[in-house]
Amino acid sequence: MSKFFTRMGDGSAVFLSEAEIRRDLEEGMLDAADRGKIPELTDDEMERLYQIITDPQKTVSIERGNEVVMTFDAGTLKLPVRAGLPVDRMTTVLTHERVLCSDTMEIGNADYSYKQLKNIVHEEAASMEFTQLNCIIPVFYGAMPNLGLYTKPDGPVDNWSELLPMAKIGEARAAQEEAIEMAVKDMVYIASILYEAGADGINFDTVGASGDGDFLATLKAIEILKSKYPDMAIEVGMAGEFVLGMHGQLEYDGTRLAGLYPHEQVKVVEKAGGTIFGAVINTNSSKSLPWNLARAVTFSKACSEASNIPVHVNAGMGVGGIPLTNTSPTDATSRVSKSLIEIGKADGL
């Protein structure tokens, strides 16, 4: 029986038979449908996924006319940090514009958290101004809400990661509520200065990494920013496929945030005033690419169908079905990109 080259979620090569690939596609798709309580993919879509996975070409591409817009998180950290190229941020942005043909780009600091930027925000603003003078594509400014940085020893608030294991639930919740207010203030402060310095948009990246409080702080900051700057483009990229309930009872406009999956997350982001939603679907490193891809596509399709704003699915290291490796293998990345766009209905990546 012939076998097809594919990968595991940790990037290792594996050869699977048609039956094994179809089984993994089915199981991955059903896992997403079950967890998210969302519709399953159709038989035609599953067949298409099978064709994409087993395409003999090393890399695949979308059909002409299906091109989508690309946005980036930690944009200016990718070439210098991930790829180890000794280039400054301006060069990174221009390389993306003039060599890689990126549609947009993002400037971010090595201390990629809003709280950490307060001391250097005016230098960041100057960088944004110079970059805008030199490039054509829209340039976002991005960082993470990173609510954990407000806890001891990095911040003034009691550490809920220490309080929770001690069953001090009330104290842990109160600490998170206190941190939310501080984070909102910092995010609005930084985003306002960078927007006024010329940023075409603001990116809130890895939202929810510290749980539902992290997500709520971002939504509140977006509300304020949209009232100050109604035309501001705001991208919200999530940290994981469901919102971790570190608090568990936080709500936004009557919706409990903990446990929301992408098709539900996008609705609250939309309500707060977000203009692009970066859905995240986690890659399971112990499962195959077919399993992870079918799962990611199922979540992506449901999210895109529920949304009234563009959905840019995160497609990178360990998310969106892409294997968890420092440098993503293009055979997998291209298959994931094509599937998310053509079956998962992603508006962008």
């Binding site: 967890r35 069953a167 639930i169 842990a172 749980g211 539902d212 309930g245 608090h247 568990g248 446990g259």
Partner: peptide
């Protein structure tokens, strides 16, 4: 693990 219950409930169950 499925996002159906949250950390505080987990802790309470543990207690």
């Amino acid at each position: 693990g499925r996002g159906e219950i949250f950390l505080p409930e987990l802790i309470l169950s543990a207690e």
